[in-house]
Write a protein that binds this DNA or RNA. Structure first.
Lengths: 259, 259
DNA sequence: CTATTTTAAGCTGTATACAAATAGTACTTT
DNA sequence: AAAGTACTATTTGTATACAGCTTAAAATAG
């Protein structure tokens, strides 16, 4: 029992739980989620490099645990580690993205079939909060706020997936594809995006009140379909008319910057 | 170009490609696949510990790249890394296993829908070879040979999945669940297992000759269903009649050993 | 002899020095 | 002037020493 070498017996278990340092694996998980969120919010945009030494300094650890986290992000397909160059955030091509979205659509349907969860009051409260946040985004053009909203909606939906393997896979696929959508926001009709988001959330809420999990995933599937369609249309449109201001696109203003 | 510091200019590019050392990432991938195969073949049975130092000695590297590989296996759900104890091969419980098999069945069907591959002559030749190997297993009770056969069949099926994300997910799920099936082989009717395997392979071959990818995945799905059913039946049977010799089960003869 | 405490051995986690690799830069040569 | 070459700065990959944790054996008090 004695996790702490009780020299004088002063430390009881209650005091221990207050004093104890963060466990190693917990710290790595925290750093992992932090960096993953930054990638999803485009704080680290595609093709940007995130050095190990830099992160090690920020989180006050050595390169070793940072490397562990970055390798996990590499397995997730979020970064690419190049020897002698650095760790660069991956930029997804259209084909891969379509594959990911198609898969997400199918898995979304599956999540209502394989060991589904009960829809609780807590879920509905969370969803109502998300609906309010969506309404507050009209006219503001807060891409990062929108991205946070998407992430939080995703988290609620994940909590409704009973099958652990399916949940983890869906989580990975979300983060693989989510930032691509956010990347394109600056070139799309903002208020329409928010209107879609509000509609999706409110329809989900309605389905939840009917205790209709299958209805929920159908809403989600349709939403994913719309997003994929818009991305495809935009990319094709960009190809055919490359002179539009659409070229400003992502956060890629590293070297060519100058407005 | 000059990867080798040509002191005297003796080494040309042709000689370089012969002499060049294995790239770091390739070496790690090789070690990763080696250990993963050992887990799938029960060379490292569930709950056995595989020390980092031991592996480092075997592959003539330091603990650092070994740790990288083990962490990847941890993300795959194949091992559990316990501080101060060691890296232990995970032992899957019935609930998780059922979730994995259900998911694999659904994903198997999906693989014929999402960007399917062409069935080539090469695929059929490989499958014929697998059929021969299955026939040679009658009466031999070679669990490891059977496990290798399953792995190779899996590899052929993976090569027929066009969607890269789906392929990687299916690959991970296979290795998560495959060894559990092999674990139970000693307690089942060997020749019937082989007969099933032969039947599955020959039916797949027939479907391939009809260029019927959907037929193939239906065969596979049914095979997965049968395996899951047998595992469930066996585990339930073991509960109700624990006195059978079924208890000898896996390679778990570490401490209680003594027949 | 039993129960408790101490101790020691062995493992993973971390930090750090060094090796290998890449890409940009300055210089040399044609 | 242009092309190629060597060099240097920077980054990731590896090896290794040490710290922290876990477990079990051994010593000790009852």
């Amino acid at each position: 029992m004695s996790n702490i070498k009780s020299i004088d017996g002063t430390y009881d278990s209650a005091a221990k739980s207050q004093v104890q340092r963060e466990k190693s694996s917990d710290r790595r998980t925290r750093i992992y989620k932090t960096i993953r969120e930054r990638i999803s919010l485009l704080i680290y945009p595609p093709n940007s490099v995130i050095g190990e030494t830099e992160l090690a300094g920020e989180f006050n650890v050595s390169r070793t645990p940072i490397r562990s986290v970055l390798q996990r992000l590499h397995f997730d397909g979020l970064v690419q580690i190049r020897t002698g160059v650095g760790t660069v955030v991956t930029d997804v091509d259209l084909k891969t993205m379509k594959e990911v979205y198609d898969l997400r659509m199918s898995l979304t349907e599956l999540s209502a079939e394989l060991s589904p969860c009960e829809i609780t009051e807590e879920h509905m409260v969370a969803m109502e909060s998300l609906l309010e946040r969506a309404k507050n985004l009209y006219g503001r053009r807060d891409s990062m706020g929108y991205a946070r909203l998407c992430n939080d909606l995703h988290e609620v939906l994940m909590s409704l997936i009973g099958s652990k393997p399916l949940r983890e896979i869906s989580d990975n696929l979300y983060y693989q594809s989510a930032r691509i959508w956010v990347t394109m926001l600056p070139n799309l009709d903002w208020n329409q995006i928010i209107a879609d988001q509000e509609l999706e959330t409110s329809e989900m809420l309605a389905a939840m009140r009917r205790n209709d999990l299958r209805g929920m995933v159908q809403v989600r599937r349709f939403y994913l379909h719309c997003v994929l369609t818009r991305i495809s249309d935009y990319l094709k449109g960009k190809k055919s008319s490359p002179s539009r201001d659409a070229l400003v696109m992502s956060g890629h203003r590293t070297q060519s910057g100058g407005d």
